[in-house]
Structure formats: structure tokens, C-alpha cells
Write a protein that binds this DNA or RNA. Structure first.
Lengths: 203, 203
DNA sequence: GAGTTCTTTGAGTCAGGATTCAAACAATGT
DNA sequence: ACATTGTTTGAATCCTGACTCAAAGAACTC
């Protein structure tokens, strides 16, 4: 029937599996994750999934790692495009909110973050993501302050963390389909906050 | 063996089940929820659980509803104790953060909020909780502004929402065991923010 | 081109948990 | 006391999905 054999190299197949698992999770959620679905999504058999990932948790952790990585490099890319601190900060804020309730990346991230309270690995990833995001805001704020465009009202580390926390809070509500809170509104609110704490009216 | 019969009234048993399910969820998580566990926790048989809740989702939704209710009335109680707007705002902030990583109520809430993206019922509860919390902050801020203790830097509705979003964002990291962020630190950061936007230095 | 190794498959087994259900019995009414 | 109805149980059944494994076959070696 099928076609047993020896088709590909290991790393490529693993990537395919991580990819497939990511899709499966966004579709049915972590709770509804079945290795059969992963296999189907990757176009292989259930046996192969176990062959590469005897411990399913490892696969899920890999999905998380990948999502964090992609998300961060996307944000880096977005902010590196412009030099002006004001435009940068704006871009940073925009890139931190889910595009819509069904934003795939954010959906994945929040779903996987939910594992953090029971899994050290996921907790670590979540914490490192937070730290990196704080880092992004920190540098942008510092550049702005050095240029004189921003007048910071508090230690830059504090401001950066609050901005990330705001993102996370609003992001959570957006992916959760809170009807009283659109993405545009959240963006406006975060910007308003940024305007106050940087003393920069043209934000 | 056991003792079949007709022991109690319906509403009491349902409450017991909701209670038991809540405990089961905090222990093993939503994903590991087994009706056997609920039954054991409630001191009855699996059959009885199905008798009262043929649809398990209804039970979980009830747990969510209960958690939101308790959480809100606790926060109301805390802020109603004091009259001074400054003390009130402080108390409100303190009551919005998880006591620790294993805070039962917050754990439950975040776990259940995670369902919101797939279940309209849970989404509604989450949204209504958000709205209520915004309401709490709104009144405190308004009173403070009227008294002259606060000088608001933006529409009160905006400030209130940002405060709740901050709580949610930091709360998420606290229950997720983010090692780089203690409850005390989060509280300090939110207060610092509040100080800036209310222009109230003694916060 | 025969042997070796690595991959893949799918059928089969196994375990765990949901669901069903008949029996048992308490409460309540008559 | 008897009948009726509402609750409870646990054993039996059914289902789903994880996991096993022997067979098949590709790639690679020499």
C-alpha cells in the first residue's frame, strides 16, 4: 500500500513535523492535539511522528521555540527598517499586537504560554521572550532619549517592561475575542501611554 | 456496596460539583480534567457527575462563572474598606495581582481564559470581567479626580483600561513563573505608572 | 549486487476514559 | 402499606488514541 523506504534527511523531517504540529495546534488547540493529525498535516504516518519524537512534549516545545524565534525576528525586522525613534517605537507597538483574533502566531504563543505554569521548558521560553521584548523597547527608548526626542519619566527598564506588559494584556484580550476591545483601540491606548511616559507629543 | 438512594437536593449537589471541578482543574489543569477526578473530589460517583452535567462544558463554564464572581466580589470588598482614593487605588492594584505563582483563583482564571478563543461562553465571561475591572478603576479614578487628589493625564476610560491591561499582562507572567518578575516588582511598576498618569506623587 | 543500515509504514495491541444502564433504594404522596 | 418518582451507584461496554512491531524498501557501502 504505502511506500516504506528512506526518503529524506532527519533535520528536514523534523522541521516538517514542527511545522505540521504548529498548524495542528492552531487548528484544534493544544488540548485537541492528536499525533494522527500531526502526521496527516505533515503527509506522513503516525509511526514516523513517534520515530522522530518519542516524547511528544519535545515536539510541542520545539513548536514553541520556533514561534518565539519567528516572532522576535519579525519584530526586529520591522523596527530595523526605520531610523527615527518615533517611527520605530510606533512600529514596535504595532508589531506587538495580534493582527486579529485569529492571528496565527499570537494564537500559538498564547496557547503555548498557557503551558508555562506546568512546564519549566515553556516557562523559560515565555520568560526569555519577555526579556527580549523588553530589550527591544529599551534600546528604542534609549536612542530616543539620547537624541532628545524622548524625555523619560522613569527608569528606562521600568518603562520598557510596562510597555511589554500592556502588549501582553491587550493581546490576550484580542485573541480571546473580547468584543469591547479592537486591535486599533488597543494600539491607540498603548500609544497614548507611550506619549505620556516619553513626553513625546508627536507619537 | 455503595449506598444508592436519594440524599440531597439538586442545587446543593451542583454547587458541590462546581466546587470539586474547580479544585480538580487547579490541580491537574483543564487538559487533565477527568470526570472520575471530579467525582472523587466531590465524594460521589462518576455517574452522578454525568447525571447533573451531561455536557461537561457546562460544568466548566460554571466553574469559570463562579471564579469570576468570587474574584470580583473580593476586589469590591477590598476597595470598599477604605475611603481615601489613594489607599483605594493602591488596594485595587494589589488585589489584581496573583498572590504567588500558585495563586488558586488567578490560576483558574487564566486557565479558563485560555478557552476563550474557542468558546463563546468563556470569551463572554472574560470580556465581562475585563469590563467590570475597568469599572472599578474608573470609579476610583473619578473620585480621586473630583477630590483633586488626582490630576488625570488622559480620559479616565483610557487610564482604567491601561491599568487593567497591565494587571493582566503582569499577572500572566506571574502565574507562568517568569523568574525575572516577582509580584512585588510588578506591583511597583504598576504603581509607578499610576503615579505618572494621575500626577499623584504619594501613590 | 549482496549486505547493512536507516526510515517508513500500517496493522494490531493496549490503556484510559467516557458513556450506558439496570439495579437499588430513599423520599414523597395516597 | 403501596406506588411512584427522583437519585445514586458500579459494573459493563464502547471508543479513541497512544504505542508496538514485524515487514518492506530505499540509500549507501564495498
Amino acid at each position: 500500500m504505502g511506500k516504506p523506504g528512506r526518503p529524506k534527511n532527519q533535520t528536514a523531517r523534523r522541521e516538517a513535523l514542527v511545522d505540521a504540529a504548529g498548524r495542528a495546534i492552531t487548528e484544534r488547540g493544544l488540548e485537541g492535539l492528536r499525533i494522527k493529525d500531526i502526521a496527516a498535516e505533515a503527509g506522513m504516518s503516525a509511526g514516523s511522528v513517534l520515530y522522530y519524537y518519542p516524547e511528544l512534549d519535545d515536539l510541542v516545545l520545539e513548536v514553541h521555540r520556533g514561534a518565539v524565534e519567528r516572532f522576535l525576528s519579525a519584530r526586529h525586522a520591522v523596527t530595523d527598517e526605520v531610523g527615527d525613534p518615533v517611527a520605530r517605537l510606533r512600529a514596535l507597538i504595532a508589531s506587538g499586537l495580534p493582527a486579529a483574533a485569529d492571528d496565527a502566531t499570537h494564537g500559538l504563543l498564547y496557547e503555548l504560554h498557557g503551558r508555562a505554569d506546568r512546564s519549566a521548558g515553556h516557562a523559560e521560553l515565555m520568560a526569555s521572550l519577555f526579556a527580549s521584548e523588553v530589550g527591544l523597547y529599551t534600546t528604542v527608548l534609549e536612542v530616543g532619549a539620547a537624541t532628545g526626542v524622548f524625555t523619560l519619566t522613569a527608569p528606562v527598564a521600568d518603562l520598557a517592561r510596562n510597555l511589554v506588559a500592556l502588549e501582553d494584556g491587550y493581546g490576550l484580550h484580542i485573541v480571546s475575542r473580547n468584543a469591547g476591545l479592537t486591535r486599533a483601540e488597543a494600539q491607540r491606548l498603548i500609544r497614548a501611554h507611550a506619549r505620556v511616559v516619553t513626553g513625546c507629543t508627536e507619537l
